[in-house]
């Protein structure tokens, strides 16, 4: 019995869309990494580490995440309807 298959290769625009979704999926993991990174820094109180520095770093990461998410949002929402491409069912 023949099961109808989805196309194996995609055009340029759908291909870009898929990669945008991949990037959107990766963004929170990347953000998490940046947010726990200060755990590896030198202990507080030393001259190398100031609370204001931590504060500025964390807010900078925050702002960066917001900016990237804002950049992704229009491209993601425009084609949010054309079916799901769950991680395993991805075809390129």
């Amino acid at each position: 019995m023949r099961i109808p298959r989805r196309p194996v290769f995609l055009g340029r625009i759908p291909y870009r869309r898929r990669r945008l979704r991949d990037a959107a999926r990766l963004l929170p993991l990347f953000g998490l990494f940046l947010l726990v990174l200060p755990l590896l820094w030198s202990p507080p109180g030393s001259a190398l580490r100031l609370l204001s520095g931590d504060l500025v770093y964390l807010f900078a990461v925050w702002l960066g995440l917001i900016g990237v998410a804002a950049g992704f949002a229009p491209g993601l929402s425009r084609h949010a309807d054309d079916g799901d491409d769950s991680v395993d069912g991805d075809e390129d």
């Binding site: 979704r21 959107a24 999926r25 963004l27 929170p28 993991l29 953000g31 998490l32 947010l35 964390l58 925050w62 995440l65 917001i66 990237v68 998410a69 993601l76």
Partner: peptide
């Protein structure tokens, strides 16, 4: 930060 990560990863 928790909600930020969840919303940024809304997909």
């Amino acid at each position: 930060f928790g909600p930020t990560l969840v919303f940024v990863g809304w997909w």
